[in-house]
């Protein structure tokens, strides 16, 4: 079931949250929407869910215009960042609330609740209340509640943001696995660029209510459409310097090089001084002061460089990105 947004605008008084978004999520695709806070990504999700009325534009699910339909008639299921589990209901109550309202047969619902909670490792927890569950368990209850709906589109609003780092990595893999198994069209909103890159079949970068670029993760990483995307994706972010400086390029441009595309080379044309050595185990990130700027350089593990040491760098010319200094657009 495809999901399409056509010219979607949303403003709250004078504040524009979405400034004309056109977006299509293909049948069975998982599209990750990523952007800094305040970029409008949550609004985007709420507009699709029907929790916020549109100012302008249309939302289509499977070709059907759902713009004016109430949330439960859109056949979407949402997983909220704080899970929004009903605190006065047991896990069983939380899961069967929707089916009960939709007047689905009780015995059938009970069976589905049992089966699904077994699959998600919640079998022994059905009679517990949400405040008796760990964060990871709550997240799986929220997921199960959405799955019981058997929706045509899943909407994930930062479903991993409330988990601690270790759990988040595991849950991220679970979501990818789950999506592969279910094959349901999914819109996954996150502020974490690494999460977007790992879960998304494609990634949409949003800033100030406008789409900056939509494409497969690697494409966005290798060919960012503008300097915002270049800076936003990747950690540490891309080195961006005014053209005509140490990274070359013409005046009136911004020249970008990713930390891994700067190589240490005794014969390299760029000379600088190592300021900080960040040893991350599997890799080392050097901050190198060159003229008035600092460049991040990614090298292998156990780098021998020490702060104060002078090094020389070389840029792979094929991996140099040039952006317009005023519009930020890729040249």
């Amino acid at each position: 079931m495809t999901l399409r947004l056509a010219g979607v605008r949303k403003s709250y008084g004078a504040v524009t949250a979405l400034a004309g978004v056109d977006l299509e999520v293909g049948e069975g695709e998982l599209l990750a929407v990523v952007g800094p806070s305040g970029s409008g990504k949550s609004t985007l999700l709420r507009v699709v869910a029907g929790l916020e009325p549109l100012t302008e534009g249309r939302v289509l699910i499977g070709g059907r215009d759902v713009t004016t339909l109430s949330p439960h008639r859109r056949d979407v299921a949402m997983v909220f960042q704080d899970y929004a589990l009903y605190p006065h209901m047991t896990v069983r109550g939380n899961l069967s609330f929707g089916p009960r309202l939709r007047r689905q047969a009780t015995t059938d619902t009970r069976e589905r609740v049992e089966r699904l909670s077994g699959q998600l490792g919640l079998a022994g927890l059905l009679d517990r209340y949400p405040d008796q569950l760990s964060g990871g368990q709550q997240q799986r209850v929220a997921l199960a509640r959405a799955m019981l709906r058997e929706p045509r589109v899943y909407l994930f609003d930062e479903p991993l943001a409330s988990l601690d780092a270790q759990l988040r990595a595991a849950a991220r893999a679970e979501i990818v696995e789950l999506h592969r198994r279910l094959g349901t069209t999914t819109l996954h909103v996150t502020h974490d660029q690494a999460e977007a890159m790992t879960v998304g079949d494609r990634v949409a970068v949003l800033a100030d209510g406008a789409l900056q670029q939509v494409g497969p993760p690697q494409q966005l990483y290798d060919e960012p459409a503008n300097s915002f995307v270049a800076r936003f994706l990747g950690s540490p972010p891309m080195n961006l310097l005014p053209g005509g400086g140490v990274l070359g390029g013409a005046a009136g441009t911004l020249v970008g090089v990713r930390p891994e595309d700067l190589e240490l080379d005794p014969a390299g044309p760029i000379e600088g001084e190592v300021v900080v050595v960040e040893a991350l185990g599997s890799e080392t990130v050097l901050a190198v002061a060159v003229a008035d700027h600092r460049l991040a350089v990614r090298t292998g593990p156990r780098a021998p460089q020490r702060p104060g040491e002078r090094v020389r760098l070389v840029v792979d010319p094929a991996r140099r990105h040039v952006f317009d200094v005023t519009t930020g657009a890729r040249r």
Binding site: L51, L85, L101, R149
Partner: peptide, 24 residues
Amino acid sequence: RLYEAAALDGAAPWQQLRHITLPL
């Protein structure tokens, strides 16, 4: 968010009152 989750579950306003607001 509880009311939004309930709306997505298909709860009409009076059902939200009955099943969410009053119990809480």
